[in-house]
């Protein structure tokens, strides 16, 4: 697979007072044209930081290491002015909260027209408005003219997200980064928005990096998946393979924790403990998941397992598991000894 977007050894550190917080360490990702990679993780995993770092959204507050190559060019090495030209046009982002993307005091049409003007996509206001209406239709908005005349608060959350997506894809970017784009939406609207992503991808061969904490969402849209924990990737590979035959206990734990029908109440296989907070101090020479892992052995506390190949295109960072973990759910027939 020739990757359009290649992330190599990405690390992001923030300085908070006297402390240095390593939010992301040593992340490698590949995304090919026309494919969606899901970055799956919980709070504090570093998934959003990774997404923001790809777009170089952090200023001087963060130190970035490694490389982010788009068609061979390292985005992290570009001067800021060059990056600004790429941002929004070649690499674009859909944020988590659609309300944050839109100015509440201005009409939607004016905002889109302004963005199109900034990117040089239209010669006149009239032309820009026509393009804006087309873009809204493209994302499934039935009455674009009415929406263009509206103020953001007059529209529903799903509508606002569609508008944010429309703005993000207006320039036909090569890579679209979506940071939890459906978390703030109702579940039926969520399904529609995720379908929309797939459509847009098919139409333009766009690469998508989708950040989410929801395994179900991941499954609905992704071709490939990278699971993050404590700032590192702990497992990655083709979606179906990773989710049906995971090789890392954390991935298996996430799948088993889902409230699957048939599991007796009170017996959900929860992962004990909680994920490390962003920037929490972690032992350098231990597996970050060891404290919560069912399969941990003594070696897990003295050695951090690197990400290594466990199958075709499938990598996992665990030295204990050497065959696919069978996901099992407690059922009423079996009596579980806790």
């Amino acid at each position: 697979m020739t990757a359009r977007l290649r992330v190599r050894d990405l690390s992001v550190s923030f300085t908070r007072g006297e402390r240095v917080v390593d939010a992301v360490r040593g992340v490698d990702l590949d995304v090919a044209a026309g494919r969606t990679l899901v970055l799956l993780g919980e709070s504090g995993s570093g998934k959003s930081v990774t997404a923001n770092a790809i777009l170089r959204l952090y200023g001087r507050s963060a130190r970035l290491g490694g490389a982010v190559e788009l068609d061979g060019r390292n985005l992290l090495g570009l001067p800021a002015s060059e990056m600004r030209r790429l941002r929004g046009r070649v690499v674009s982002m859909v944020p988590q909260d659609p309300s944050a993307a839109l100015d509440p005091l201005r009409r939607v049409g004016d905002q889109i027209v302004e963005v199109l003007g900034l990117w040089g996509m239209a010669r006149s206001r009239g032309a820009a408005r026509r393009i804006a209406a087309e873009q809204l239709e493209r994302v499934g908005i039935a009455e674009p003219e009415r929406v263009l005349r509206s103020l953001p608060f007059e529209l529903s959350g799903g509508m606002r997200q569609r508008i944010a997506i429309a703005i993000a894809v207006a320039c036909e970017p090569q890579v679209l980064i979506a940071d939890e784009p459906t978390t703030a939406l109702d579940v039926t609207v969520q399904a529609q928005v995720l379908d929309l992503f797939s459509e847009l991808q098919r139409a333009n061969d766009m690469s998508i990096v989708m950040v989410t904490h929801d395994v179900g969402v991941a499954r609905m849209v992704g071709h490939d998946i990278a699971v993050m924990y404590a700032g590192r990737i702990v497992e990655r590979g083709p979606m179906e393979q990773v989710l049906s035959a995971p090789r890392h206990p954390y991935t298996a734990g996430l799948l088993e924790a889902l409230p699957t029908p048939g599991v007796p109440r009170g017996s959900l296989r929860a992962i004990p403990g909680r994920p490390p907070g962003p920037g929490e101090e972690l032992a350098v020479d231990a597996c970050a998941f060891a404290a919560r892992c069912r399969s941990a052995v003594a070696a897990c506390w003295t050695h951090r397992p690197p990400l290594h190949t466990v199958g075709s295109d499938h990598d996992a960072a665990c030295d204990v598991i050497d065959e696919p973990i069978r996901i099992s759910f407690p059922t009423l027939e079996r009596t579980e000894v806790a």
Binding site: E42, H213, G253, L254, A257, P259, R265, G266, L268, P275
Partner: peptide, 18 residues
């Protein structure tokens, strides 16, 4: 809540009810 934490809290609620 994150899904893994959600599972813990759901278990807790069930235990409390029992």
């Amino acid at each position: 809540l994150d899904k893994s934490v959600q599972a813990q809290v759901l278990n807790l609620l069930a235990d409390v009810q029992r």
